[in-house]
Design a protein around this nucleic acid. Structure first.
Lengths: 222, 222
DNA sequence: TGGATATGAATGAAGG
DNA sequence: CCTTCATTCATATCCA
């Protein structure tokens, strides 16, 4: 998904091989200053965009006013009940529900896509190891995630319109039942090809606009 | 061969100007293929980072994906959402959520009472079929309704003493890091700090590779 | 008009 | 794997 502009390299990596416009001959493997400048610009642009996104993100994600504390592991929070009172009791520990970070989710999704079926134990281990780079996670989490993911995506049932729709303009619709939820992105390397050389002047809004990124999915169950 | 330099700069525009490490001398204004490759990687990294941030941002911001998942049923009333189906993508900012009609609600309640147990799938189907006579509804709706009904009635007995009440030991929690649903945010920003400014030199494989796949599935069981 | 509450839906985890 | 529960999110609705 994530349809990027079809524009491919606007800084021809190609032409750099064929000629040298600054006069000095350069063999394959070098590029002109101009070309280099273009690349530099692109990097700068990305840097800026990243920065902006980061700022934007920060401003948007405000912390919750009356939230209770979280445990340092980042995986859960304090339990609302039993706090004071009781004797030496394991403070935290109560209910720590793991929540994947967006990065983790993306990775999980991409893995999920490449092959159906729940990964075996070894694979789970690997995945967990990899994901731990992006946040707190355990093998059980990974296991559960795949179980749930699979089970839930399987409910695609026809929303059996149940007739009586009174639907005057009810278009065919027919839920596509793509069930691939957001971020599907092919976690492959090839996926970055499209975005390798986008127009440097694209702005933040451009990046954010492809927001709906959902392949779609909803209504699971039965 | 990628030596992991500890470099931190966000755009290595400098070094590409200074030397040619592949031996071939190149005048100012050109760069070796290797250097160019480095730049290209950096760009790719930024592209990916931007993408990640964008995704992250989307997941955090209030509106979320869900494009056409739910079948257009507005229950008793219509929900103001886009119409023109011809246009491919438009902003579906409002999620339409099912709302039982009063008739449906009555039926649901009565069913709920007669058998507090959980209706199984078959039962759900029947109920949905019946209720569809009184308005749009899906099995999922019925399922969710019972789920929620049961869960909430059960929770009625536990007056959540959360906040609001001068919680004596409440605020003791002290925020260490906020995680929760918001994935990162506030202090959590550090959680994806590693993808924000990874070492440009090797960030790519870290960010993009995961297509190694392998294996077959066997028993996993944790 | 903004907060409090009700409620549909999403999802991690537990049981079987 | 499938079902169920518990918790949480996002909205709709209400009220002052």
């Amino acid at each position: 998904m994530v349809k990027k502009k079809k524009r491919r390299k606007q800084s021809g990596e190609r032409e750099m091989e064929k000629e040298s416009q600054n006069g000095a001959y350069v063999g394959r493997g070098v590029m002109t200053e101009e070309q280099m400048e273009t690349l530099r610009k692109q990097i700068a642009v990305y840097a800026v965009i990243c920065e902006q996104l980061a700022l934007l993100h920060n401003s948007l994600s405000s912390f919750h006013p009356l939230s209770s504390g979280m445990n340092p592991n980042g995986g859960g929070y304090f339990d609302p009940m039993v706090v004071a009172s009781s004797s030496a009791h394991q403070r935290i520990s109560t209910r720590n529900r793991w929540t994947p970070t967006s990065t983790q989710l993306q990775i999980l999704e991409s893995i999920y896509e490449e092959r159906s079926g729940t990964p075996n134990r070894r694979r789970i281990r690997e995945i967990a190891a990899e994901l731990s780079e992006h946040g707190q996670i355990t093998e059980t989490n990974v296991y559960n995630w795949f179980q749930n993911r699979r089970a839930r995506s399987k409910r695609k049932q026809t929303p059996h319109t149940t007739t009586t729709d009174t639907g005057p303009a009810e278009d065919a619709a027919v839920v596509t039942t793509d069930e691939k939820r957001s971020c599907g992105d092919s976690g492959g390397f090839e996926s970055y090809e499209h975005i390798l050389f986008p127009s440097p002047d694209l702005g933040i809004e451009h990046l954010l606009s492809r927001g709906e990124l959902s392949g779609e999915f909803n209504s699971y169950r039965l």
